[in-house]
């Protein structure tokens, strides 16, 4: 009896999740990271977390087919804050009901994009906001939605490198007169 009830609950949830293709708009959530502290002149990665609603997928940064729109993060950093590198996760090779014989490189569920930031040595130590957009194009199992751009931003706190003075003044080094 209890097993039957569990089955009923699962069936209820399955029915609730079974949205007909194309019946709801795709949604991607962005979870801004906590403020990242970065030393002046040093690079540090910042992880940007995204979540794609269940039932949808977006192309990875390296889709297998040339005509597909890749997921891409475009950032506009303040002067003196350099964006060194944007690292995308590898796509998941998946086939879908609309094309069972073809594998697409996609993101589903949660994924993170790593952004390597480096404040210049001369930048004023304070908080800086980096703004940008995530460009993506989503599909479900039977339809595709026009390419979209999602606003993205995160903050970094630039602080002085505590070792910077030591390096700048070799006379203080015990090995300076070796």
């Amino acid at each position: 009896m209890r097993l039957g009830l569990c089955a009923l609950i699962l069936a209820g949830f399955a029915a609730a999740q079974d949205f007909p293709p194309g019946s709801r708009a795709p949604s991607i959530e962005y979870f801004p990271p906590e403020i990242t502290t970065v030393y002046r002149g040093h690079a540090k990665p910042v992880q940007l977390q995204f979540r794609i609603a269940s039932g949808f997928h977006i192309n990875s940064n390296r889709p297998k087919q040339e005509y597909l729109k890749k997921t891409e993060l475009k950032l506009d950093a303040p002067t003196d804050i350099a964006i060194l590198k944007v690292t995308y996760p590898a796509g998941e090779d998946r086939s879908f009901p609309f094309s069972p014989d073809e594998k697409l490189s996609v993101y589903t569920g949660d994924f993170a994009v790593a952004v390597s930031v480096r404040p210049l040595k001369t930048v004023l130590p304070t908080k800086y906001a980096v703004h940008g957009t995530l460009k993506y194009q989503a599909c479900d199992n039977a339809a595709c939605y026009p390419p979209k751009q999602m606003p993205v931003s995160f903050e970094i706190k630039v602080v002085k490198d505590p070792n910077a003075n030591k390096r700048r003044n070799p006379a203080q080094s015990p090995h300076a007169h070796r």
Partner: peptide, 10 residues
């Protein structure tokens, strides 16, 4: 349709 639409290609 659109070129970026995989189901359209099918």
């Amino acid at each position: 349709w659109a070129t970026w639409c995989e189901p359209c290609k099918i």
